[in-house]
Amino acid sequence: MTQKNNSSTPIRIPTCAELATEGKTPDVLFWVGCAGSFDDRAKKVTKSFARILHHADINFAILGTEESCTGDPAKRAGNEFLFQMMALQNIQLLNAYHIKKIVTACPHCFNTLKNEYPELGGQYEVIHHSQFLLELIETGKIKVNGNSFRGKKITYHDPCYLGRANDVYEAPRDLIEKLDLEITEMKRSREKGFCCGAGGAQMFKEAEPGNKEVNIERAEEAMALSPDIIAVGCPFCNTMLTDGIKINEKQDKITVLDLAEMIAQANNL
């Protein structure tokens, strides 16, 4: 067990297919999502979260190359055909592996799996990684060291598909407080949270003509608090806010960090 923190030992991430050949099913499926699989910034979050799962001895697996887009961006863009194509294929796969519980670091995957899959035959307990991490801490499966972020000023950006869409406001905040940090809230937070600009398939298109980009508006609101860290719980918010900070040339002063990265850092993982 003591070897786990040793970075020279590569961690193996099991896939459902591998477990199935041994006749096993994971307790939890880690749904990585497209951003978490392919986007360089989001991959760091994926790896942090996987390290925590490994460190806490969770019986988990991923779908690996068998995972597909949940269909979320297609659905929000109005392409219900493509959405249901993806959904029904994913559900077939998930049911074949007898998946009961899914954790994901992407609020868009979270929302789609949790709310839109059940009617199509995919009924799972779906939780966001902030909820899962909080549970790990509260059940003592992982410990956090408050020293890692001592003296840092932090604000938290609510992802729309976690907050307003699913009323998860407290888990991410409780998690941050476990790190002995006090959140400096933006004026537009919780129910009044302001979108990063990526939702509803905006991530994949140019914005319509206007006088400002949505992510700049939000980044400026966060920057006005002069935080050291902007905590996020969504790969798209992460990209949008990181870009917004860079455009304002504040990337040396302000870091955008995912909750999983903060917990991993606090565990030297």
Partner: peptide
């Protein structure tokens, strides 16, 4: 199977970078 132009076979490449 992803909104970007990546090969589905590369989806789990991150697992090889877990050091």
């Amino acid at each position: 199977a992803a909104p970007w132009q990546f090969s589905p076979m590369d989806r789990a490449n991150w697992t090889q970078e877990m050091n």
